[in-house]
Design a protein around this nucleic acid. Sequence first.
RNA 1: GUCCCAGUAGCUCAGUAGGAUAGAGCGCCUCCCUCCUAAGGAGGAAGUCAGGGGUUCGAAUCCUCUCUGGGACGCCA
Length: 616
Amino acid sequence: MPCIGQFRRRLIPSILLFLFVFRSPNRTKTMKTQIQSLVAGALQHLADEGVIPADAIPTPNIDRTRDSKHGDFATNVAMALAKIARCKPRDLAEKLVAALPDSDQVERTEIAGPGFINFYLAPAAYHQLIPAIMEQGSAFGRSNLGAGKRVQVELVSANPTGPLHVGHGRGAAYGSAVADLLEAVGYEVHREYYVNDAGRQMDILGTSVWLRYLELCDEPLTFPANGYKGDYVWDIAATLHRDHGDSYCHSTEEVFDDIPADEPEGGDKEKHIDALIHRAKVLLGDNRYRFVFELGLNTILDDIRDDLSLFGVDFEEWYSERTLMESGEVNKMIERLRKSDHVYEEGGALWFRSTAFGDEKDRVVVRDNGQTTYFASDIAYHMDKLERGFDRVIDIWGADHHGYVPRVRAALKALGDDDSKLDVLLVQFAILFRGGEKVPMSTRSGSFVTLRELRKEVGADAARFFYVMRKCEQHLDFDLDLAKSQSSDNPVYYVQYANARICSVLRQAADKGIDAQPSSGTKNLERLTEPHEQALLVTLAKYPEAVEAAATHEEPHQLTHYVRELANDFHTYYNAHKFLIEDTALRDARMKLILATRQVLRNGLLLLGVSAPESM
RNA sequence: GUCCCAGUAGCUCAGUAGGAUAGAGCGCCUCCCUCCUAAGGAGGAAGUCAGGGGUUCGAAUCCUCUCUGGGACGCCA
């Protein structure tokens, strides 16, 4: 399998997940799924009695109620099935309620409104939740929904021609959260960074490095308009100069002899830089050119790896475009298209007939100069992903690639592969605001803010959280001042503070000689009767549902909203009641409640890639 | 020009994928701070869910048209 390096293979977590899946088959049983199976049982019973047709039994839809007056859960099946059953919704609801299997979880049911069946859970159902959370610990909220299916997630995949900027940061945070969520619900996740180390842009980088090096050798020259002008290019050139002196040096006359004019001189900047690349290859020879090229590539790739790792974003694999080409996958792909008659030659180039698959225009796979296009590599890469046997393939791309999606799908269809396994999530750019003003950013002028700078300014936690607060396709206004502020207006701070506050209470308890980890059974949990406590218990119970929803919809923002809600419930509870009180039974119950709350806060934050510090 | 995404309270956004009286934070108004962290707390006002039409028991949510805003189009990578 082609790859230039396999870092941090996640074997250990996979093994743990494997064990966990086999040891805890009940973990997926959220309160919601328990209600669901009760209703399913009732439906089956009605089908057996001929009230509803046996072939029309749906998976019952169970919802949390918006209003606690309507109980904890509600189902609309009676309304949904009324027509088929030729029965009034409320009448059907009554029959359903009568057919419900007994459960110690449900205290009572009620038929309401046009035909809703409301479920009121027994207090015990919530009280059992606390020991369950404490027992499962960091596994609480995880499930086996994915059933160990293999999913490949491609994220970031920025060209290694410079440091990551804040646009890549959102893709990294979002993709990482999606991958982690999928892992949490039982998928075997393979995170992959596709390294574009073969294209023309990399040649431009290598040549840029060499030209800067020549300047360090005191060769006066005009740097090309289309070259990479960032300071990091100087740094790489300086390394080359420091380690190898003048041995890569050629005179300006030699280098620029007969090179077509650059744009500022009225020429074509593309032709200018292409000629310089060619000249570099000729003057340096294959080996020495390769050396400069690799120095640039490896320096930047190392920097990107380091950057992402500090951002809490790690990969199972860094997949090299170059090895993909060298392995012959690209040619194999072209041959397959040729055999199935999906390509044709025109104007010296080889075109893929993507219009036959709904694309608006045919696309070039081999240019008239014989070079395969980036698109060709990308088709081969996706073909390879499917050949590797993944059940699902998810691409996290910048929204500017959206025109690209139909092309890749078309190509997969043409190859006879199943493109429904592919999901492409497009991530919009984030706009930074400082002091209420947009931070100007443009790649052209090189004035983009790097991910590293952002991390330094607001910290990895705030950056990770803010990046995933909105749906991926939505524009994100990133308020730097808010992200830095230590106040409850800052959602990251607010959530982390809830965790720290609980830790603080536990420290206080320890100082007072109070047992902060009471081990007495669940009996005293019945003392948790305050509305704030009930609310907190309900929110804790929702956590597995929130993880499941966020994972299945690939929407980490749902989890950010959840942890905020949980933190809010805790803070209001904290403000309303004291925990370290004389009444030991009630105190023990409250200690257990806040311990469980801390566990769930931690689990949620960690899933989002955010730390849970014990003090602020 | 073609296509994609969005439009919900003054602002920034949720809205459990078709459900019951549309929510939160900020801002605004009223009240409160001897208390495990006041880097706060309690309450209140605030909405034609851009607009029209449709689908059905039921629509912010699905379909359709219109308006407004943002974005994408390459023998670049």
